[in-house]
Design a protein around this nucleic acid. Structure first.
Lengths: 198, 198
DNA sequence: GTCTATAGGTTGATAGAC
DNA sequence: GTCTATCAACCTATAGAC
């Protein structure tokens, strides 16, 4: 495996475990078994390394999301839409990606927001349109609010995934990803279907 | 105002804005207008400063939560329970506390988990019992999962609060806290009431 | 209690040999 | 492309005068 890929792999693991700020370039090069200068040669700065780490994983997730949404046909239900959004990121086949995505989605820093806009805006827009079709009686504001509530629920279980078994005394089993997708989908779909005023 | 309180105020603001790791003690003492050594005199280490900053704000929130839950009577509905949990942290009267709580709740680091356990475990347990009473047909695992989904939705809107207007093109107005409480309560209550298997 | 000064270590980034 | 060596800046924490 090349130096560049080894750096990306090590960075992915450490960013997910400790966060972006708490991980130094020296931590990364030590774990990757490469020289410190290599990271600057291949990625110039730490910020653009973070960007590359996220981009490598978010793009396949987003492609899969759009494909699943398309597969659901022209008039998908809320459940189909949200499962298409949730499954690709929750059931990603590389376990290190889960905490990485969790960190990414729950770090509201200026730099992260830039990366966020670059990689997520178009997908979010496409799903927003689908939700508008499935929930024609919901106001725009309420729909956008509820999408953020969903994003929060997803981000939270991803970023806390390695701590949830301990925090819940083993009750919450993170290893069954398909079951987690189903749980999340049921929960957020019911939230979307709630009456706007009670 | 005393030096100690000025340090706590500055730290609260900066931790909320930039995160715990990204904020240095120099940033804090500069904004507080006090000497660098003062923070070590009053709080010994940075970690125990973080603890003090969070403790000062989380305790009134938790007291209010328990009071509202008690006020709801012996057999509260899901809506009453969740509103008692959500309102005190969303409608807190100091605006700097909102992003602070968001950062706190969405930083899954070892140290933060310790603080989390210290200040939130008993409250979470009390609310779990109340939810068990209101939703007797829900399995323990599903109930705990759904509580984490709620925690994620809440943490997300708190930590992204200062960026949401920009990200949504002004559609999501964070300033109306009571409306936000109502939105969150409706959404998560519907999620809790969802059928366990579909 | 508050200050100056500084220790002792880490950081991101770069220059230049090979 | 990969290395060693190093810079300049930053960090937390502490010692000791006042």
């Amino acid at each position: 495996m090349g130096t560049k890929a080894r750096i990306l792999d090590a960075a992915e693991n450490l960013f997910g475990d400790r966060g972006f700020e708490a991980t130094s370039l020296r931590d990364i090069t030590a774990q990757a078994g490469v020289n410190l200068a290599a990271v600057n040669y291949h990625f110039q700065t730490k910020d653009s390394l973070i960007d590359a780490v996220i981009q490598r994983r978010i793009e396949p997730v987003n492609c899969q999301r759009l494909k699943l949404l398309e597969d659901a046909g022209p008039n998908p239900t809320v459940e189909q839409i949200m499962e298409a959004y949730i499954a690709p990121v929750v059931e990603v086949d590389l376990s290190a990606v889960v905490p990485l995505m969790g960190r990414f989605l729950s770090t509201p820093d200026q730099f992260i927001v830039r990366v966020f806009k670059k990689h997520l805006v178009t997908v979010a827009q496409r799903f927003d349109e689908a939700l508008a079709g499935a929930l024609p009686n919901l106001s725009v504001a309420e729909r956008k609010w509820r999408f953020h509530f969903c994003a929060g629920a997803i981000a939270h279980v991803l970023s806390w995934s390695h701590l949830l078994p301990e925090v819940t005394g083993g009750v919450c089993d993170v290893s069954d990803r398909k079951a987690l997708t189903a749980r999340l989908t049921r929960f957020v779909s019911a939230g979307f279907r709630a009456e706007e005023r009670s």
